[in-house]
């Protein structure tokens, strides 16, 4: 079995700061990490590898430095890593991204047919959750999103059964390979690479493809050109004009404070009390 896992290198959003004055992103010193949701999918793929003996290839589109993130995936147990990196990919939105990635997956499939593709539930920078379905469409894969559990995979019968999160319940779905899976967070816990794997990764050379090597012919379906969406403006959320009416509890007893609060509350919002009663 051959599994491709799509991983994206993203800025650690918890560390991104907005410039207090210019309202622009301050990337200085913001570390790049593997999109956390992708690691859930990678771990799931690696578990299939452990169970059924599959070959796992990680794939990313991004700048050269994204190779670092791919190496982390190799350390965790991926057999091969491909980075498609090319100026023509710059400014891709999800449509252009899924175009480039699906082309690369088809190219990877030429050496060894691909049975499953994993994507993360979403990214923490784009977080659109669109690239996965996009790839599935383009490659005609059965699409299994928000998977909380992979019940069984039968490579011989080319059959897979999964639990898929729906609103208010879980669908138990059975379908055929090849398919695309996006995993739900918390579906598994990431492994800790062994020393041998760390050495293998440290010495591994990530395969880098430009658009030609990735088998992409229609360059104007990549990058900005191939992106229907246009980001018109980026801005910081407006602070509210009205600030909270403050009740200082210091010095007062809790019950005094609470009484003050409730009388103000129900005086200013007469309906509220009735509504709470219902």
């Amino acid at each position: 079995m051959h599994i491709v896992v799509c991983v994206k290198q993203v800025p650690d959003s918890s560390q991104i700061r907005v410039h207090p004055v210019t309202n622009t992103i301050m990337r200085q010193g913001v570390p790049a990490v593997v999109n956390p949701y992708d690691l859930v999918s990678l771990e799931e793929a690696l578990r299939l590898k452990d169970r059924l003996g599959a070959r796992v290839t990680v794939l990313s589109m991004g700048p050269k430095m994204a190779a670092e993130s791919l190496k982390k995936c190799v350390a965790l147990g991926a057999d091969a890593a491909v980075l498609i990196t090319d100026r023509v990919f710059a400014g891709s939105d999800t449509l252009a991204t899924s175009y480039a990635l699906s082309a690369a997956i088809r190219r990877i499939g030429q050496d060894e047919p691909v049975d499953m593709v994993f994507c993360g539930k979403q990214t923490i920078d784009g977080d659109t959750a669109q690239v996965g379905p996009g790839i599935a469409r383009r490659l005609g894969l059965q699409q299994l999103t928000y998977v909380s559990r992979i019940e069984t995979v039968d490579p011989a019968a080319r059959e897979i059964v999964v639990h898929r999160r729906a609103e208010g319940g879980v669908q138990v779905l059975q379908t055929k390979l090849p398919c695309l899976v996006t995993m739900l967070e918390g579906a598994n816990t990431l492994r800790f690479a062994s020393m041998d794997d760390m050495f293998r990764a440290a010495r591994y050379d990530v395969v880098e493809w430009d658009h030609k090597a990735a088998g992409i012919t229609e360059v104007d379906r990549c990058g900005l050109k191939g992106s229907p969406t246009v980001v018109k403006k980026v801005f910081a959320p407006q602070p509210r004009a009205i600030k909270a009416e403050m009740l200082d509890a210091t010095g007062k007893s809790a019950s005094e404070t609470v009484d003050a609060l409730l009388s103000t509350l129900f005086a200013k919002h007469p309906n509220l009390e009735a509504e709470i009663r219902q």
Partner: peptide, 9 residues
């Protein structure tokens, strides 16, 4: 010895 499995170097 490192904190990883087979950690002797």
């Amino acid at each position: 010895r490192t904190d990883r499995a087979n950690g002797e170097i």
